[in-house]
Design a protein around this nucleic acid. Sequence first.
DNA 1: TTGAAAGCGCTAACAC
DNA 2: GTGTTAGCGCTTTCAA
Lengths: 343, 343
Amino acid sequence: MGVTLKELAASLGLSPTTVSRALNGYPEVNIKTRQRVADAARAANYHPNTRAKSLATGQSRAVGHVIPISTSHEIVNPIFADFIAGAGEAYSRAGYDMVLSVVPDAEEEAAYRNLVARGTVDGLMVHGPRLHDDRIGLLHDLGLPFMVHGRSSGVNTPYSWLDINNRRSFRRATEFLLDLGHTRIALVNGLEGMDFAMRRRTGYLDALEAAGIAPDRALMRTAEMTEPYGHQAGRELLRLPDPPTAMLASSMIVAYGLRRALTEVGLQPGRDVSVITHDDDLSYMPNGLDVPQFTATCSSVRDAGRKAAEMLLALVNDPDLGPINHLMETRLVLGDSTGRNRL
Amino acid sequence: MGVTLKELAASLGLSPTTVSRALNGYPEVNIKTRQRVADAARAANYHPNTRAKSLATGQSRAVGHVIPISTSHEIVNPIFADFIAGAGEAYSRAGYDMVLSVVPDAEEEAAYRNLVARGTVDGLMVHGPRLHDDRIGLLHDLGLPFMVHGRSSGVNTPYSWLDINNRRSFRRATEFLLDLGHTRIALVNGLEGMDFAMRRRTGYLDALEAAGIAPDRALMRTAEMTEPYGHQAGRELLRLPDPPTAMLASSMIVAYGLRRALTEVGLQPGRDVSVITHDDDLSYMPNGLDVPQFTATCSSVRDAGRKAAEMLLALVNDPDLGPINHLMETRLVLGDSTGRNRL
DNA sequence: TTGAAAGCGCTAACAC
DNA sequence: GTGTTAGCGCTTTCAA
């Protein structure tokens, strides 16, 4: 515990009120007084007590992220860390704290209610929206500003979101493969039920339809986005009577699993079978030009976190701001994973 | 904002004090009153205002994690998310909030000072300790309980930590390769300067020395633990006049890079060159028996997060508790990546 | 331009 | 067992 406002004021022979005003930039303070106060505060390493300040102002200057864990397809997702990194950066720049609430799936709703009722945060970020996601209605009712990272189809109430253009991204990736002459293109998607997975599937189907190719259910897999599942999906796909010549994976981790399945049976990814991935640029596992093994549609998830956080803060600071949203486009980065030999 | 204690008390015809006592489990409350209060609180969805409570008690019931980002070898590390998940779980079980502070490297010290001076947290977790890490002395001076995830060699003041037995883990992995007959064993380590990397190197050198094998500097690489760096290290190692027959990677991500380097030149990992990795069990990218491509020394980083958080809370709740620490052993999991053909 | 006083929602002596 | 009072550290009317 450091110096208090009262102590600081006493040491200056001023009232706490004046010191508070000086420190918070109120105009009616004598310029010399303000300077004196600022100097003294710095010298004393004075930082206002967060709790007292929030209690007095009714604002916590903190933002909450609730992460459910039991289903394991959430924090588990490696994009989580990068998103948090970007968001956290934006928060600390703006002087906000980030409160992370990691709870079992079943307690997620209670966690939101808790954070709101206890006044811990001024705003909330929603991760990993599903189709018809209940949380959006809940947060709407709770009345605190919130942002959704992603979208939730089937929700009628308007809400604020930031999303990447999953549909367009996967449509383009599929078109790219079609242009190369592939017709048997597998989609190894994330878990159905997650909104992004649905959108990616739609983009894939759009492209097939436009090319006059009937989708084959056997080529469409859905799984948690982990390496072993990608591996398993890859094995199953290769065992098909008429296996795919190209594979479109929903995440780089899954693509690694696919590569493993290929090399196990002596096929070389990028020569025998094309492997394209979508992944947000993860700092510890970048894709794009640095990793020419894949062709990828990618966007920076750290940028997304930053941007989403900025939008949330805008909502927090202006409650009258209507629902705002932002759609990020992806880059298509061509690597050498195009399966030329099969064409 | 929900109901306040005062309102709740008024609706019950009781004083705020009594209600507070009833809710906080003080013994001197009439059993019937307590019941009545509990019921009313539940019915009104009453949650005590965190800020007011902390202000009154002087405790924030929150714990801080400071994550520096500019050097990118920290949050970047995929183990971060799992550790946070485990810790967050323990915190919310104990009714504590987790405050994440993501700051540029240069502002890390200021971030610690801030959190302490503003009274935002009751305790702190330190991530990614380096050799002679300044943060430990700083936190010691700040006087708030803290835990280090890892250790920092060269620091004299005693401090609380939780670490895995990096040295033993890498010694065993190296011994395993030696037992298989390998003598040219590469070590693709994390960044020197990080304490864990030093310990891993020591374990590796211990094993070589015990086997009477002189270490070869050309076989020892140090890099950020990303896929591209692993790939680059792998290429360089394979171009050596006398290339290694086995590679020991400090993380699975790096091991993937090594595998890529091998397959590029037509070598098969696990048949032509053995690839062993160390990695904590990451939920989105498990190793061990599920992924028989690698032999691995692994520990659950989520467990580590949980345990470290519990230890930190113990420190917070008992300031007299001396420095406490915990050393986790790893499991050695044998996959098929043993390079049999070369032996 | 500055200060006094009240209050944010809660807890913790100290009465009763 | 329950209530009264003061106070945590800050902001914010209202007065001067």
